[in-house]
Structures are given as C-alpha cells and as structure tokens.
Amino acid sequence: MADDAPARRPDLTRRAFLTAAAGASAASALAGCAPTSLAAPRAAAAVDDPPTAGAVPVTLRVNGKEQRIRVDPRTTLLDCLRETLLLTGTKKGCDHGQCGACTVHVSGRRVNSCLSLAVMHDGEEITTIEGLGEGYLGEGLGTPEALHPMQAAFVAFDGYQCGYCTSGQIMSAVALLGEPCGPEDADVKELMSGNICRCGAYPNIVAAIQRVRRGA
C-alpha cells in the first residue's frame, strides 16, 4: 500500500484482504502454473464442474440454502464447511473431537463436525454459527444487530476471551435449550462438558446460558 496510514474502507474486511493477498502471493510464486485458479476464490464447486478423481456429489442444506457440491469422501463436514463452502465461523480446534470448537447442528442435533464426513449428511439440514439469529441473510452473513438470544447473552456476559471456541460453545448452548437439562449450573456444565475453553471463560458461559434458559 502506498499510504503509510492504511485507509479504513467499510467494504474491505480483514478476511477478504487476507484471502486476496494470499491468492496473489501464491499466484506470483507459481506463475505459469494455472495462476487463475489459484487467484480465484474457491467458491463452492458446482456439480456441472468436471469431476475430480474420487469426488462424490453431495447435497447439503446449509443454513437454509441448498448446496450441491462434490467432495472427496474423506472430507470431514468441518473441512467441507470451511474450505468448500467458505463458512469459516465454525472453527477447527483439535480435529479429533475433543474440544468442541467445530460444533454445528445436523438436523437440529449438535455434532462435532470434525468427526463427521460430509458424505454422511447428504440431504440433511446443517446449521452453523452463521445461520443463527434473525439477521441471517441467506448469504453466509448474519448481522450484529439481530443476534440469536444466545449470541447476545454471550456478548452481555463476556462468555469468551479469545473467541476461538465461542462459535462451538454457542452452537452447543443453543442445542442444549432443546435437551433435557436440570435447572442448576452443574446441569449446564455437564451438558456443556464437550466444549473446552482454554481461556477459562466457563463461569461467564454458564451465566449466559442460564440467563437465556430463564428467559430474562
């Protein structure tokens, strides 16, 4: 950038900038090796695209929108959401089902998407953190003005520090609302025990969930 003080442009997000910068540097490093495909964002591959070896067609309904894609059968639901559908709100923590950062809803039930294959969920309804809240626009973006009550409670109670586990915590917490759970804090802790927070925001997470459960 020519300016030493970077201009703050409302239409330029941090993620879009990093994606474009990474694509440009990869393209220049590999000039002549199909740079157009590297520089272009990896949008969801349409079924009409030439099939890649071993890829199988899968139809997922993600946040209310039907997605017809081809994936390698080894692709986890997590990698499919993040890498193919570019829904990066769902985080990869341990990738071994131990931390809960990758929690999403499949047909209303919470699952660790890292221990689930995309091909297993052909035709099923997937909800990610992007699909929560009334502000969901159907294009992978909700709005901060219309949060799900659980998202608002996490904000109000500081239910996070670094925020990496937060999308998984919130997806688990929203699913918890529909599960048999006793009234005490200990009951919430038991049902949230699959979600690890390395910052130790547990007291605030429990407080946020209890606030939503009590409808206050």
Binding site: H96, G97, V111, L115, S116, M120
Partner: peptide
C-alpha cells in the same frame, strides 16, 4: 454409526 470412535 456417527463416526466419533472411527474417524479419529
């Protein structure tokens, strides 16, 4: 049967 004890 879900995957949590196989895929890891």
């Amino acid at each position: 049967a879900g995957g949590t004890t196989l895929l890891d």
